[in-house]
Design a protein around this nucleic acid. Structure first.
Length: 517
RNA sequence: GGCGCGUUCGUCUAGGGGUUAGGACAUCUCCCUUUCACGGAGGAAACACGGGUUCGAUUCCCGUACGCGCUACCA
């Protein structure tokens, strides 16, 4: 069994946008597969038609692509040898396995209607049973092929009566599930119920479909969320009853992603409430038109999201925090996945993004920023190389100040538009009777310069100050306010150089006009 | 309620029978700096509780508490 080729799958249900917890599950599957030279498969588990949401499948595919978690085979990724990968398209394959289980005595037909099931539950609750189950005891009072006379069950089947197939859970056995993260988990079948395997609409439930597909697709490791741990014994039993025990995959149940404040599973609402995305991509609900924000649209880099998610529940033996996807593949192991749930931390997510922002070249950032500038209708000549070079220069300064590229405009709009408002406090404190004369002198000297580089600009400024008997430090802040309107920002003479002497002159004139006398 | 899983700084975590319990984010102080940020230095900050086992337990065992998950013809 250890000789088997590693094949893992990510098997989401298209019931809505996949959130970051799903992305992390996909990521761990991907890392594990790549680490062992195996395959990563995307299988869409759409056995529940009621909950199907249009666009959800496309959303999942696009999200994986954006994150760089690319499956070897599966829906949207060039179907492979085991196609189809959408369970709705595999519908015809499941019935025979369900029937095989009936024949071998491990499952049975049940004809109970929804009303009858409800009645049974109500009765039992009235009798003090808090969560009634359809199990080895209660099944004796229900309408199923185990209790009905043999010919009646057959008759009902032939008459086309609606039925489901349920597993015949043994009365008192121990089921042992070996989990790569949690160790051995032992459950008694007395606690388990006769789960429906095959629904009356001809579709399998998750439990059957999952086991059958994993078997057929030669899946070697099932890596999924912790919410599946309670049903893992059922799956183990299914492998046994189907005669597939020797090729049963290994299980690894991942800890859950928790909400940043308080406790509980991270949910869609948390993002809205706390103001950070829980989805990789922006999503518009097709019915309500409600929009949920996404990491991509919020300005996160996929590397940052992947890096952050990788460390939420997994840790290498070193203190390394920054990982490329390649490094993650090299170092990943299921043994180092933690057992407890991880609270999601938006602040750390921001820190990761800041890191990756600084690793981007000025040119890459300029390309991103240009897109935004176009939309802002900034009067710059987008097509020209000269302007690209200028925006690159701006990005070089701005990337040291920002966490996200979408903060560039807020941080650096003064590169494109002269300030309209000036920091009042600085003006009030620093502007005096000598200011107009001093800045006019600076302006003239800049004009005399052939090229107003940042070195030259600084030298000239300081010289002028000295000549006027002013300490440079006393006018620096004022100069910044005249140029940018505000008090913070990149090295001032870098800004001056990028703006050019004509623009600087204009801004000095505007300020002198406004505050002079 | 039942069953299962979990519990180290505020958060993510390392560690593991004898440690000054380590790192990162956040926070605070200082340095750098014309500003903001970056960067650097430092500070504050944790083994849920109770019993065992042991010379010694945060680490192993058992309970308790708390949290989470599951308990559908949903996945």
């Amino acid at each position: 069994m250890t000789e088997r080729k590693v094949r893992v799958r990510f098997a989401p249900s298209p019931t809505g946008p996949m959130h970051v917890g799903g992305v992390r599950t996909a990521l761990y599957n991907y890392l594990f597969a790549k680490k062992h030279g195996g395959d990563f498969i995307l299988r869409v588990e759409d056995t529940d038609r009621e909950r199907f949401v249009p666009g959800a499948e496309e959303y999942i595919i696009e999200s994986l692509k954006w994150c760089g978690i690319v499956p070897n085979e599966g829906v949207g990724f060039g179907n492979g040898e085991y196609a189809p990968y959408r369970q709705s398209e595999r519908k015809s394959m499941y019935r025979k396995y369900a029937e095989q289980l009936v024949e071998s005595g491990h499952a049975y037909y049940a004809f109970d209607t929804t009303e009858e099931l409800e009645e049974m539950r109500n009765k039992m609750q009235a009798a003090g049973v808090s969560s009634p189950q359809y199990n080895s005891i209660t099944r004796q009072n229900m309408k199923n092929s185990l209790m009905l006379p043999a010919d009646e069950a057959k008759k009902r089947l032939e008459a086309g009566e609606q039925y489901v197939i349920r597993i015949k859970m043994p009365r008192n056995e121990e089921v042992r599930v070996k989990d790569l993260i949690r160790g051995l988990v032992v459950v008694h079948t007395a606690q388990l119920d006769d789960k429906v395997l095959f629904k009356s609409d001809g579709m399998p439930t998750y439990h059957l479909a999952n086991v059958v597909d994993d078997y057929l697709m030669k899946i070697s490791h099932v890596i999924r969320g912790e919410e599946w741990l309670p049903s893992a014994p059922l799956h183990v039993l299914l492998y046994k009853y189907l005669g597939w025990e020797d090729v049963m995959p290994e299980f690894a149940h991942l800890p859950l992603l928790l909400k940043p404040d308080g406790n509980g599973k991270l949910s869609k609402r948390d993002g809205d409430r706390l103001g950070f995305p829980v989805f990789p991509l922006q999503w518009t609900d097709p019915k309500t038109k409600e929009v949920s924000s996404g990491y991509r649209e919020k300005g996160y880099f996929p590397e940052a999201v992947v890096n952050m998610l990788a460390l939420l529940g997994w840790h290498p033996s070193t203190n390394q925090e920054i990982f490329s996807l390649t490094e993650l593949i090299e170092q990943f192991s299921l043994e180092r996945v933690s057992k407890s749930g991880a609270k999601f931390d938006p602040e750390k997510a921001k820190w990761f993004n800041q890191h990756y922002l600084r690793t981007r070249t000025d040119k890459e950032l300029a390309e991103i920023f240009m897109e935004e500038l176009k939309q802002k209708l900034v009067p710059i000549n987008i097509g020209s190389d000269l302007q690209l070079a200028r925006v690159q220069g701006i990005c070089r300064l701005l990337k040291e100040k920002a966490n996200f590229t979408n903060e560039f405009w807020k941080l650096g709009s003064y590169f494109f538009i002269a300030p309209e408002k000036y920091d009042e406090e600085v003006v009030r404190k620093k502007w005096n009777e000598k200011s107009s004369e001093f800045f006019n002198k600076v302006k003239e000297k800049y004009f005399a310069l052939e090229k107003c580089s940042h070195d030259e600009a600084e030298k000239v400024f300081k010289q002028t100050a000295e000549e006027s008997g002013i300490k440079p430090g006393d006018v620096m802040q004022l100069f910044r306010v005249i140029i940018t309107g505000g008090v913070g920002g990149p090295a001032l003479f870098e800004v001056v150089a990028l703006l050019g002497k004509e623009e600087v002159a204009k801004r000095i004139e505007a300020a002198v006009k406004k505050f002079g006398n």
